[in-house]
Structures are given as C-alpha cells and as structure tokens.
C-alpha cells in the first residue's frame, strides 16, 4: 500500500511533524480559549470523559518533550489506521 513513494513520503512528513515538531509548538491558549479566559467562561469547561492520552501527553512519561512526541506519534498512526479502515468501507466497490 505504501509502495508509492509520494504516499510514503507524506506519511513520513506527518510523523515528523507530529513527533519532532509538536514538542516545540506554542503553548499559549488558542483563540477561543483566550476569549473564554478573558470573558470569564473558561471555568464552565468540564471534563466529562477521561481520555487515554490527555492533553497530547503520553501518560507515565515525566519528560514533557518525549511525552508530547510519543502522543503525536501515536495520534498520527491511529488516525492513519482508522481512516484507512473507514476509507475501505466508504469507497466505491468495483
């Protein structure tokens, strides 16, 4: 499936961005979070569900850089696998 060079290169790019670049992303709140802080409704935010890899940090890893990189790596592969499976289901049958 990844014999195609271009597809393989794009996958490597996704892994590189998700693993090597992600620990260096800006940590300030995003636009909506910032407004929620400024206008005082951020306190309403609730966690109703405990995600396995909360806040893009792999649990059990003390080093933040490594925890983010591993979370990114896991997320990229998980997204790939799920969309490959979904794609099979929703594509045209010849």
């Amino acid at each position: 499936m990844f014999k195609n060079k271009g597809i393989f290169a794009l996958l490597l790019l996704a892994l590189a961005v998700g693993t090597l670049l992600s620990p260096f992303a800006a940590s300030s709140p995003d636009g909506l979070e910032k407004v929620a802080e400024d206008k005082g409704f951020i306190e309403l935010a609730k966690t109703l569900f405990y995600a396995p890899i909360p806040d893009y940090l792999m649990p059990g890893i003390q080093n933040q850089t490594l925890a983010t990189a591993l979370a990114g790596f896991a997320g990229v592969l998980l997204t790939l696998i799920i969309v490959l499976g979904l794609g099979k289901l929703i594509s045209k049958k010849d």
Partner: peptide, 25 residues
C-alpha cells in the same frame, strides 16, 4: 471515491492530525 485513493486519504488525515498539533503564536 475510488478504493485506490484510500491510502492517500489515510496519510492526508494523518498529516492533518499532526499539523493541528502545531500551535503558532
């Protein structure tokens, strides 16, 4: 959607996931 496009769909989604992790100031 042709089945041969599915690998491209998968890697594009993976790329979007990765790119969404990169917050810029």
């Amino acid at each position: 959607l042709e089945e041969k496009q599915v690998p491209f769909l998968g890697v594009t989604a993976a790329f979007i996931f990765a790119a969404q992790m990169i917050n810029f100031p």
